[in-house]
């Protein structure tokens, strides 16, 4: 007893208090680690490429890749937060991109965007209904929709591709609003990502829906006992990820004006990876929108770094896999360690 009082003397207390608040930060704000890693990686990449990594052209490309990936990953983080997983986002992404490209020349940009979002909504609702109301594991349902809509995507283009020539694209009304236009040299997609971030962050952390979603992921039974309609909350999460993935598809299709059957392949894996790196717990109940965006930025940066340094691009898969495993292992360890120190 006396020993403890002496170590908690006035000189130590500041150190201990700072350390404690730091640890609480690590535990409570899940994005801390991802944001720190993103900053450190940016610094390391900038130094080792003599600044090429940070130059304007490269940053424009990295931020666009980040934006498209982050919009899907934010949606994914909601589903993961509800304790489920959606691995069909790559296929929804492709469906969104294709619907947009197929309809834009004939019916105008806004009608095409609306229809593509409707497609995303429908697929999300389909997944969500089967998962929430029939109680079938989401891995199986979304695995099936990954298959189904990837096949439909191939069918739509009949093993060819959809494309709109650049001149035609630029002539369309409102085309520049989605991913093609720029602000300060950066792609509009970044603005869209920020919009998604602000809206969903507010929804998640200031509104009742976010609270319910966190409750469902944390403990579905307790949530039910407190009057949360678990099924409806899960259905909503799946619809949101459908909309997010379709919108990301629109942004990408709008920028490149091209989509084929392979559009968005492996996107589901990258989105999940971004969530894990960003501090979302796969068991549900814990998530961070800002962390997920940092995760997407980290993945996009690694990809760009490998290109700049002239390493074989195939190395990306290996590096990303290793990185995600390390992030997941580290995340659990650091959190446990921080919890113990508290």
């Amino acid at each position: 007893m006396t020993a403890t009082t002496t170590t908690h003397g006035p000189a130590d207390s500041v150190v201990i208090r700072t350390r404690r608040s730091l640890m609480r930060g690590l535990v409570h704000y899940r994005e801390t680690i991802a944001v720190l890693v993103a900053l450190v990686l940016t610094l390391v990449f900038a130094v080792t490429t003599n600044g090429v990594f940070l130059n304007h052209a490269n940053m424009v490309s990295v931020t666009h890749v980040t934006a498209v990936l982050a919009i899907i990953a934010i949606g994914q983080s909601l589903v993961i937060c509800a304790g489920e997983i959606d691995i069909s986002v790559g296929s929804i992404f492709a469906m969104g991109a294709m619907t947009f490209l197929a309809l834009a020349p004939e019916f105008g940009v806004f009608a095409a965007v609306g229809t593509a979002l409707l497609v995303g909504f429908m697929i999300g609702a389909f997944n969500g209904y089967l998962v929430a109301y029939l109680g079938i594991p989401s891995l199986i349902i979304t695995l099936s929709s990954l298959f189904i809509f990837r096949g439909i995507a191939y069918m739509l283009v009949q093993d060819g591709a959809l494309r709109i020539p650049l001149a035609e694209r630029l002539a369309m009304d409102g085309y520049l609003a989605f991913g093609s236009g720029t602000f300060f040299g950066f792609n509009n997609s970044v603005l869209w990502m920020l919009a998604f971030m602000v809206v969903l962050h507010l929804v998640m952390f200031t509104m009742p829906f976010g609270n319910r979603l966190l409750a469902v992921g944390g403990d579905a039974k307790s949530a039910t006992s407190r009057g949360v309609r678990v099924r409806r909350v899960k259905l909503t999460a799946f619809i949101v990820v459908g909309l997010c993935a379709a919108f990301a598809g629109i942004l990408e299709a709008n920028k490149v004006g091209y989509a084929d059957g392979t559009t968005g392949r492996l996107m589901e894996l990258e989105a999940i990876a971004a969530c894990v790196v960003g501090g979302c717990a796969l068991a549900g109940g814990r998530m961070s929108i800002i962390g997920t965006i940092a995760g997407a930025f980290i993945l996009a940066s690694i990809q760009s770094y490998l290109v700049i340094t002239g390493t074989t691009p195939q190395l990306y898969l290996v590096v990303m896999a290793t990185f995600v495993i390390c992030a997941a292992l580290l995340d659990a360890r650091v959190r446990q360690w921080a919890l113990r120190l508290r």
């Binding site: 695995l143 099936s144 929709s145 990954l146 298959f147 189904i148 809509f149 990837r150 096949g151 439909i152 191939y154 069918m155 093993d159 059957g261």
Partner: peptide
């Protein structure tokens, strides 16, 4: 391409 849709 029908095959993967069918499997799903």
């Amino acid at each position: 391409s029908w095959f993967i849709t069918f499997v799903g």
